[in-house]
Write a protein that binds this DNA or RNA. Sequence first.
DNA 1: TTACTAAAGGTGTATATACACTTAAAATCA
DNA 2: TGATTTTAAGTGTATATACACCTTTAGTAA
Lengths: 149, 149
Amino acid sequence: MKKVTKKELSACPDCACFNIRKASRVITQVYEEAMSDTGLRGTQFTVLVVVAIHESIIITSLAEKLVMDRTTLTRNLKPLEKQKLIEIIPGADRRTRAVRLTAAGHEMLVIALPLWKKAQQKVAKFMGSERLDNLIGELRALEKIAVLP
Amino acid sequence: MKKVTKKELSACPDCACFNIRKASRVITQVYEEAMSDTGLRGTQFTVLVVVAIHESIIITSLAEKLVMDRTTLTRNLKPLEKQKLIEIIPGADRRTRAVRLTAAGHEMLVIALPLWKKAQQKVAKFMGSERLDNLIGELRALEKIAVLP
DNA sequence: TTACTAAAGGTGTATATACACTTAAAATCA
DNA sequence: TGATTTTAAGTGTATATACACCTTTAGTAA
């Protein structure tokens, strides 16, 4: 029976996928802890913000802005809709559906935004602003790999 | 009714949580596409590797190595167990349970490791090795924020 | 030794994620 | 115009994630 050697395995802890998912778990907890009074999850906050920026945006476009699979977004919208923070309205033609914030959604952002800012500042303080900015820039560069064949 | 201004929202796309989760989605797809012949998910590959490195490791320790909530790991072990890639054996005392690879688990790593390496090289080529190493280092530094109060 | 505390683990519940597949409507082509 | 293709969206299924809560067992203190 074949077995991989310890030596071969030794490179795996430097896996980009492992390290980014790991950091993602940790950072998500930092932000969700900061926003725990609102009950908003990290992803939910992001969705609300992008919807707020666009006033009204169709689902496929929103998914593109979020770099998120469209079917994932469909599911992610559900809890926000249940909480009546967003509403789904008819789009330009009969195929499309658009998302927009409700009044409650706007109010939620008023509460959540300072809490988010606190989390962002905590992270910036921990890493240093410049290092954090650079890290985010590198993540943006990395994600461009998505379009490659 | 209060509303946040566009100006206030303009900082949010620089959210560390958003950007790291976004990059995490993209990179996960790169690795899973590369390993699609095996049917292994990114997380599953990582679990197999860490278990292989430790021969046998109790669940709580494994969760710590993975920087993953223990209850998440419990769930993540299920599909690996169902595929008989790992087995759960009694630990040192009656509270503990340990994870170890089966023969099939070892064989799977023999197949998956070169596929993983190809993905890792693709990412390294895209970003540049040095930049990628630096990025991973920064992610490791960032995740240290977990222990803070 | 008994009672309390700490450690290890699992379950209920809810959200996040995406692939394969399906349906419906719009756009384009022959 | 009618047929084909493209676009938008939802569902089924499976995995990933973690909090709150519970049970069992081990360790420790009174």
